[in-house]
Write a protein that binds this DNA or RNA. Structure first.
Lengths: 167, 167
DNA sequence: TTGGCCTATGTTACTCTATAACCTTTCGTA
DNA sequence: TACGAAAGGTTATAGAGTAACATAGGCCAA
């Protein structure tokens, strides 16, 4: 049985963006932390699509949007904040960052990453997290953070003959 | 029920090294690929312990062992070869490389990484790989490579009060 | 409302990781 | 032994991330 993840389907992405930004505002308000202009702008840029973005790409996007250039530490500090608040995830495989659709629920970082179109699909599988914790416990290991990064082809790209034959 | 992974236990590590190098020799012989001096030396250095090593650390170790300095491309080419042959894995979380104890069996990259002592324990859980493939298939995703990197505390460090209190 | 503190951002310089491009050497084979 | 492919050497540079210190802005207490 298959379902199409939202990242992979045609959808009104403006809705994704506004939902994410509103969730971020509420979450920061509730926690008493400051979602500054810069942090909000970085989060908004990350949400431009469902593809993870590198810090230096973000810097260029900021420069283009703001006329003023920001230096690496500035963007990394904003990213650190967003990571701490769980508003974004880091994709180690790509040295890149992607928005989290459910920042208010504590969860692990599990992604499907399409190497054809570049999108990253976040999995929501608490059962899988539990399975991983179980396997680790058998080895006497105390789990703190999980990072699952599966690369391959998303539903769209896998069914696109132009993609499948060009690999 | 717990078992102590070998990387975590007291063990004769020379045995790990000689096994790994012998396995590599056999595997390359069988595949008709060349395990050159440099490649063998890099593999041996990686196997010095169960902690992932960065490319630049390896470069320094090579320089110390050989009197002659090697440049980054040289060590990266050796690493690429070893990765292609499945003799080592890359740990994205650490930008580092670690020896694979079972290069002759095709498998996914699943690791437990202790942030206290630095060791990486490779999991051997085909069932977990299958579970991940299943979850991905539900989203219509065609899996090519899995990378699971779990960070936390290994059995030794978790039971060491000096470690637990210093975090 | 001012002063002081804390947090956020700016700036400069640097480290670490990785690769491009081109040249030389080495190895296996014809 | 000579040739071609593969491996390694060299130089330069791209890409990712951080240290250290300076400045600005928001918030609270007196």
């Amino acid at each position: 049985m298959e379902y199409a993840p939202i990242a992979c389907s045609h959808h009104d992405h403006n809705h994704c963006i506004s939902d994410a930004l509103e969730a971020a505002r509420q979450l920061c308000l509730g926690r008493g932390v400051r979602l500054t202009d810069l942090r909000l702008q970085v989060l908004e840029l990350i949400w431009q699509n469902h593809k993870p973005l590198g810090a230096y790409t973000l810097m260029e996007m900021l420069a283009r949007a703001n006329t003023r250039r920001v230096a690496p530490p500035t963007v990394y500090r904003a990213l650190d904040f967003l990571l701490e608040q769980g508003l974004i995830h880091r994709i180690n495989l790509l040295n890149a960052f992607i928005g989290c659709p459910s920042p208010n629920i504590k969860h692990q970082s599990h992604f499907l990453i399409c190497h054809a179109c570049g999108i990253a699909i976040e999995l929501d599988q608490p059962e899988l997290s539990q399975k991983i914790i179980g396997v680790a416990q058998e080895a006497g290991f105390r789990v703190e953070k999980q990072s699952l990064e599966v690369s391959g082809l998303c539903a769209n790209c896998a069914s696109d003959p132009a993609v499948s034959t060009s690999i």
